[in-house]
């Protein structure tokens, strides 16, 4: 039995397999690969997009979906993670998709359950299906991604999307450059910059991130506007450069990406959403049917 907690759980060979299957699933036709299977989605933190994407993916494969909404209840108080896991396990699911505000919860649950756990995003740790769909989107645009350069821009320190992309892209032979104010830079061995202009002429992809103001307890930046003056991806900044723009959504318009770039064909943000369903179908198939 296999879990998908972070991107390292899949070898390069397995990643290739997932991407190839996702390609086939782009036809959006219903399938019966997971007939009579039950997928539980349990989101301890709100997320409309990721949850719907997983649910549509599971249903397109013929699985039953049970969604447990616990984001507003205090169900976990006084309970160990073992207790939580044992309760989920008792329902006999074939896979559990978990989203949690705290890093590491899917990892710990995986120690205690008898079915695959799919990490739907945990704290600032990992969001493996997002990284897979970002890679898939790049692959569909470039063909081969080896040797390409990606600038990740935004609140990288608090971003599970960045964390998963850093791991997976690094392994795929893509160079990642982190562009952010010092406030948002984590400690890594990667190249960093505080100015987009400094790297824009050498990158092929700009991956803009949502600034996670809600995660912060102490004030970090004076305002989102103050942040946007330097780090918003604008058409003025992009000019006619041959660079694609990705964003995991939801986009803070005119903070992360400006209105003009949102409708620019170089922005692949909606395509990422579409690709997300296909990639998640491939992941569920891999973990449940194999």
């Amino acid at each position: 039995m296999k879990h998908l907690i972070n991107t390292r759980d899949f070898s390069l060979e397995e990643v290739e397999h997932i991407l190839a299957r996702a390609d086939e699933f782009l036809d959006e036709k219903p399938r019966d690969i997971l007939n009579n299977k039950t997928v539980i989605t349990i989101f301890f933190e709100n997320s409309t997009r990721t949850r719907s994407s997983f649910e549509i993916a599971a249903k397109r494969l013929g699985a039953m979906v049970v969604s447990l909404d616990v984001s507003r209840s205090s169900s976990s108080k006084g309970e160990t993670l073992f207790d939580t896991a044992a309760n989920l396990d008792a329902m006999g699911p074939d896979a559990i998709v978990v989203r949690h505000k705290s890093s590491g919860v899917p990892h710990i649950l995986a120690n205690y359950v008898n079915c695959p756990i799919v990490n739907g995003g945990d704290g600032s740790h990992a969001h493996p299906t997002q990284a897979l769909l970002d890679l898939f989107t790049m692959r569909r645009h470039f063909g081969d991604v080896r040797g390409k350069k990606v600038a990740i821009v935004g609140d990288i320190k608090n971003s599970r999307v960045a964390n998963s992309n850093i791991e997976l892209l690094g392994r795929m032979g893509v160079e990642v450059i982190l562009v952010a104010p010092p406030h948002f830079l984590p400690q890594t061995h990667l190249r960093t910059s505080h100015r987009i202009e400094e790297v824009i002429d050498e990158v092929n992809v700009i991956m803009s991130l949502r600034t996670q103001t809600e995660r912060h307890t102490n004030q970090i930046y004076a305002s989102l506007k103050d942040y946007a003056t330097d780090f918003c991806i604008t058409s003025k900044l992009m000019q006619d450069r041959d660079i694609i723009v990705l964003h995991p959504g939801p986009v803070h318009r005119n903070v992360d990406v400006d209105d003009f770039m949102m409708k620019d064909p170089r922005s692949k943000i909606l395509e990422q959403v579409k690709n997300g369903v296909a990639v998640r179908m491939a992941v569920l198939e891999k973990l449940i049917a194999h």
Partner: peptide, 22 residues
Amino acid sequence: PNLDDNGLMNDGCIASTLGLSG
């Protein structure tokens, strides 16, 4: 504590990888 954001473990590469505040 105000020099960290609810820090949980040593601020370093391992904290970054685990997504835990340093």
